[in-house]
Amino acid sequence: MSRSLAAPQKLLRPLLQSCPRTQQQQQCQRFLSTQSSSCRPRRPTTAQRCTLDSQSTSVSSPSRPFLEQRRYKAKTVEEAKSRYRTGPFSWKAGLLFVVTSAGLVWYFEHEKQRMQRKRIAEATKGVGRPKVGGEFQLVDQDGRPFSSGDLKGRYSLIYFGFTHCPDICPEELDKMARMFDLVEEKAPGALTPVFVTCDPQRDDPKILKAYLAEFHERFVGLTGTYEQIKDMCKAYRVYFSTPRDVPAGKDYLVDHSIYFYLMDPEGDFVEALGRQHSPEQAARVILEHMKDWKR
């Protein structure tokens, strides 16, 4: 032992007493022979801790003051030995750790998703927010009057289109039928699928009925006068370019927005579902919003 360790012997005495003498010597020798960096413990065992303590007190390395806080005193040699053998970890502790972490991760993910949906659903409610949707008075495909009141009490999925639509609307309506079936499977009677024409001049109830029958017998088809449809589209922020008073026999197409509007049972807008959603994804989104509502 060199002189460097002799001086602080007094300081170290309480610590050294708790460690087996031989082991402690060994450790200190190792510490002295190798430099401080190589002596850093990979596992904080008692014997090594003693070394660390001696290191921090005797050599006084101010760069690692935190080591001071990790001091652990074993009361008996047996305790120290048993601790050395098992370390601070056991399979029980490991299992508890894993289960707790998994539980927390699941809970936080679940809550995050719920809050996200809630934010989307509430983004359009309240004061000073853009209002999508509103009162309307139209006729359905059987010629019966149909108003916004008829949609209350259930979620509704509203799609705007027209029967002469070349490619997108038919595809989207097939998707809507699939979506509706998927939702209906899990939550029967909770959703009303609605198709609103943007082309009231050509799409009368009879034509709508024949058109929608090809997609799903449960679809509600709505039409009205040009003014009524214009107001409806305005309320739902739907862009449409239907020409007014086209002479009969002249063909034209209509540009319009192609979103599914999910409305809650109070007639408030919840979320717009677009072309990027597959029917399965869209159905999942709808069902999740429905679950939130019941809470």
Binding site: Q116, R117, I120, E271, A272, L273, G274, R275, Q276, H277, S278, Q281, A282, R284, V285, E288
Partner: peptide, 14 residues
């Protein structure tokens, strides 16, 4: 990504 929040990553893009 132009997906809505209900989407899962890796979904089919149209």
């Amino acid at each position: 990504a132009v997906e809505g929040p209900g989407d899962t990553p890796g979904s089919k893009k149209i």
